[in-house]
Design a protein around this nucleic acid. Structure first.
Lengths: 119, 119
DNA sequence: TGCATATATAAGTATATGCTTATATACTAT
DNA sequence: ATAGTATATAAGCATATACTTATATATGCA
């Protein structure tokens, strides 16, 4: 007997393959796992991945192009977060649940004073 | 409260990305979804995907190389099936649960007399 | 206005990918 | 043995991918 159930929205194989292809990259998969915890901005990813800014931007653009993430500008910064109403989100959430928690990465960033906060 | 829970084995992001990259191809994703239903042999995939035999073999080899599928020769045929003891299998199973059922494809193949059976 | 910071985009390049055709291997049946 | 069927592998090729460097755009602040 199952009392609580994860959303098991069905999506077409083609659509799923497109998503998995995008997530089949260590950088993008980690990005999405991080954004599942909290919204992030480009410079935070640059710091976390020790990667060039254009490279980070290009990864984020791919995620945005399929609608899996949405962006919101706040001052100088553009924050990205997971679009939880995307048709493929339930599948994405399922697979993220099999990955290690990424919270420590954000904590470490905060401790180094590199977490961007705009209130 | 949750009484029954899916296996939520955690695997490293790098390992997960490797798997998702493999499954981020419509052909291979469908193959795995089909094999989740029942073991299949190469010529069945050739028929189902209307694809060249070498192409099918190459896709299966990639899946085999990471250990996600295992093969077993029976006479002329080599049957492939999902390796349910693979560390990434729980994640794979999770995401497959968001795909449409592929049973009809195998049924149709059977009705056309093209299902390989060796007993 | 002018400069610094944050981000996006463009163009170039090396490598990866998925197909193709041709050929090799393995098993079955005559 | 020989032919037929099933599968694997190799080599070639067109396209996709992920980075790089250079440059453009947008915001904040003095």
């Amino acid at each position: 007997m199952k009392l609580m159930e994860d959303m098991k929205t069905v999506i077409e194989v083609e659509e799923a393959a497109k998503m998995l292809k995008l997530l089949g990259d260590k950088t993008r998969l980690t990005m999405v796992a991080l954004m599942e915890e909290d919204e992030c901005c480009v410079c935070e990813f640059v710091e976390l991945f020790n990667m060039s800014q254009p490279s980070v931007s290009q990864h984020l653009r791919k995620l945005r192009d399929v609608g899996l993430v949405v962006e919101e500008r706040r001052g100088q910064w553009i924050f990205f977060c997971v679009n939880r109403s995307h048709p493929a989100y339930p599948m994405v959430k399922s697979l993220l649940s099999h990955l290690p928690n990424q919270h420590n990465k954000l904590l470490e960033l905060e401790q180094r004073g590199l977490r961007v906060c705009c209130e």
